[in-house]
Design a protein around this nucleic acid. Structure first.
Lengths: 342, 342
DNA sequence: TCAAAAATGAGTTGCGTACCTCAAAAATCG
DNA sequence: CGATTTTTGAGGTACGCAACTCATTTTTGA
C-alpha cells in the first residue's frame, strides 16, 4: 500500500542499481532504451516523486535573478518592487537573490543595453519590456546564454522569453468597456479615453478591447478620440479639463494608464464627478480613495503581489526544470469596486 | 559582503559551538540569556536564514492532511477537490498527503463526529465548517491534539482554528449589491434574492451585505423577501418561476448560492433573461455559459484553485512553524463578467 | 570468436540541518 | 571551599539525492 519512498526503492523495484536510476532520472546517456522503460515503469507504478528538499539540497546552488523595471514613480511598479522586498526572507531561505535594475524602459537602446549587461551574469531575468526589435534581440541573447527570461506586465510575444507574467490587456480593455457600458445604464452620450500613449503595447491593446465592446454592445455610447497624457498627472489634467469643457455630453471616462491624479482632479473640479462613469486601472492609495469617495466607479487591476511572487516562482521553476503550475501563475483581471477593495 | 551561509558560520561569528547555535535556533533550554543574545545578534547581523531544503530534509517528516468537504454535487466544492488533485505531485514531492473526507456538513453532529475521528490521526485539517457549538468543540479538540486547523470557504470565527481560507462574505454580498444596483441603471423596480438557506452563515452574510448596499445606495430598488432554494436546482427553479409570475416589475436577481441551473432555467423560460440583471456566485461550466450568453451579468467568485493551494500552503507553513505570507493567502472577491472570464 | 564499445553496478562524497549523546567547562550555591 | 547544577563543546548519525569514479558485465560488430 505505502509507496516506496526513495530512489533506492525504485532501483530495487526495477532490478537495477541506484546509478542507473540516477542516469534515467536525469536523462544521462548510456542506458539501454529497454532499461529506461523498466525504470520509468517502476517510478510510475509507485507514483514516485523525488524528494524536493533532498534534490534541492544536493544541488546546493544559489541562483541570481534580476528584475529590470522602469525608472520613476509609477505606483504600480513600485508596488511590485515592494512585494519583491517582502519576499526577501523566503528567497534567502532558498538561496535566491533578486536584484532590481531600474532603467528607462521607453528607450529601446538603453533597455536592450541593460539586458545585454546581464548576459552570463544571472540565472534568470524578469523584465518589464518594450516590444522593440533590439529588446527582442537582447532577450533572445539572454535565453541563448542559458538564463531564464520572463516578461512582466508588458509582453514581447515574438521573443524567445519563457513565460509572460501579466494580464491579457485586450481582455482588460474589454472588461473596462463592459463596465462603462453597463454602468452608464442605457443613457446616450460620449465616452472619453485617456491613455499614456497609443505607442505602448499594453495601452494600445486596452483601447482596442474597450472600443471593441462599446462598438458591439453599447451603440448609444460614442467614443471620443483618445487623449494621450503620457502617464503624467499635469498633462493628463490639462487634457481632461479641455475634454470636459468641450463636451458636455460625456457620460463615461476610461483612464487607460497612470496619470490618474490629474484626471481625477480635472473631473472633480468640473463638478461632474460621480455622474460621469469613471473606470481606470490599478489599486493604489489614490484609486482606493477615489473608489471610496465615489469619484471612480471601478478599477481594473492586476495584483502586483501576485505578479512579483509569480515571476520569482516561475523563474525558480524554470531554473530547476520543474513544471509550472499554470493555473496558479495565471494573472487574473481583477475588477475592483468600493465594496470588494482588497 | 557575502553573508555567511551556514550555521557553522554563525557559530564561528558568535564564538560558540554548533550545538549552541542549534539550541538557540530551536529555543531549546540550557543556554544563558547572554549567549542567546550573542547568537541571535550574529544571525541578524548577517541576515541569516536556515537553508529551507536542508531543514526540511533533516526533519524528513511526512505529513498527513485531511480535507473535510460536503457530500454531493456542489460544483464549487468539486472544483476545489479537483484542484487538490492537481496538487498531488507537488505534495508528493514534499511528502505530504491530503485525504478528502466527504460528509454531510449540514448536520452538526455528523460533521463533528467526522472531525473527532481525525483527532490524533492527522497533522492538519481543512474543513468546510458549519458554525455550530458541537463543530466548534470538535475543532478545538483537534487544535488541542496538536493538529493545525483551517476553515475553508465557511468560517467558524469563535473556534480556535488557526486560519480561515475564504472570502469576506459580507463584502461579497455588498459587491453583488453594487453590481445589481449599478447595472440596473437607475430604473425603479424590485430585486429578488434566491439563497440556499438563511441558516448558512455565508449565505446569511451575503444577503446582509447585499441588502445593506441596496438600502443605502439604491433606494429605487425594492428587495423582495428571500426565497430559499436549498441549493437545489428543482426547488430553486420552482420558486423562481413563482416569483417571476407574481412580480412583473422584477429588474434584478441575486442568486446567493448554488441551484443556479434551476434559477437560470426559470429565468430563461420567462423570456425576461437579459433584461433582468442577474448576479450570482462562482465560475462553473454553467455560469460561464450563462455569462457568455448574456443571461447572467456577473458572477462573484472566489478562486477554487487558490483556495485549495492556500489551504495546503497554510497547513504546511503552520506545521513547519514557518510564517504565513498573508498577502499571498488572502482570498480575493473576484468579479467575473463575460470579458474577464478566466 | 574476440576486441571494442556500450551498459551497468558499486561505491564515495557532499549538500546543511536536526537531533542526539557524552564529556568538559563554567557558574552557582551552601 | 567543595559539591552541585547549569551551560557549553565536540562529535556523530541521518535525511534523500546529485554527481562523480572506476571496475565489471553485457552487447555489438567485424
Amino acid at each position: 500500500m505505502n509507496a516506496p519512498l526513495t530512489l533506492r526503492d525504485i532501483a530495487r523495484q526495477a532490478g537495477v542499481s541506484l546509478a542507473t536510476v540516477d542516469r534515467v532520472l536525469h536523462n544521462r546517456p548510456g542506458v539501454r532504451p529497454d532499461t529506461v522503460r523498466r525504470v520509468k515503469d517502476a517510478m510510475a507504478r509507485s507514483a514516485f516523486q523525488p524528494h524536493a528538499a533532498a534534490s534541492e539540497l544536493a544541488r546546493a546552488r544559489s541562483r541570481r535573478f534580476a528584475f529590470v523595471m522602469p525608472l520613476g514613480g509609477n505606483p504600480f511598479m513600485q508596488q511590485i518592487q515592494a512585494h519583491l522586498g517582502e519576499l526577501a526572507n523566503w528567497m534567502a531561505a532558498r538561496r535566491l537573490t533578486a536584484d532590481v535594475v531600474t532603467t528607462d524602459v521607453f528607450d529601446p537602446a538603453v533597455l536592450a543595453g541593460k539586458l545585454e549587461d546581464l548576459v552570463g551574469r544571472v540565472d534568470g531575468v524578469a523584465v518589464v519590456a518594450l516590444d522593440h526589435p533590439s529588446v527582442r534581440a537582447a532577450i533572445n541573447d539572454l535565453v541563448e546564454s542559458g538564463a531564464k527570461v520572463v516578461t512582466l506586465v508588458s509582453d514581447v510575444p515574438s521573443s524567445r522569453r519563457h513565460h509572460y507574467v501579466g494580464i491579457d490587456n485586450i481582455a482588460a480593455g474589454r472588461t473596462a468597456g463592459a463596465l462603462v457600458g453597463r454602468f452608464a445604464g442605457g443613457k446616450t452620450g460620449r465616452v472619453a479615453i485617456m491613455a499614456g500613449s497609443q505607442g505602448l503595447r499594453d495601452h494600445a491593446e486596452r483601447i482596442f478591447g474597450f472600443s471593441q465592446v462599446l462598438a458591439a454592445e453599447f451603440r448609444q455610447l460614442e467614443v471620443l478620440p483618445v487623449a494621450e497624457g503620457h502617464d503624467a498627472d499635469d498633462r493628463s489634467e490639462h487634457l481632461m479639463r479641455k475634454l470636459l469643457a468641450e463636451h458636455h455630453d460625456i457620460i463615461g471616462l476610461y483612464n487607460v494608464g497612470a496619470g490618474t491624479a490629474g484626471v481625477a482632479k480635472a473631473l472633480t473640479e468640473s463638478g461632474r464627478a460621480g455622474d460621469i462613469v469613471f473606470v481606470g486601472h490599478d489599486v493604489t492609495a489614490l484609486t482606493r480613495k477615489l473608489l471610496l469617495s465615489g469619484v471612480m466607479h471601478a478599477a481594473i487591476s492586476q495584483n502586483p503581489g501576485h505578479e512579483a511572487r509569480s515571476a520569482v516562482r516561475v523563474l525558480l521553476a524554470l531554473a530547476r526544470g520543474e513544471p509550472i503550475l499554470s493555473e496558479q501563475e495565471a494573472i487574473r483581471i481583477d475588477i475592483v469596486m468600493r465594496d470588494n477593495l482588497p
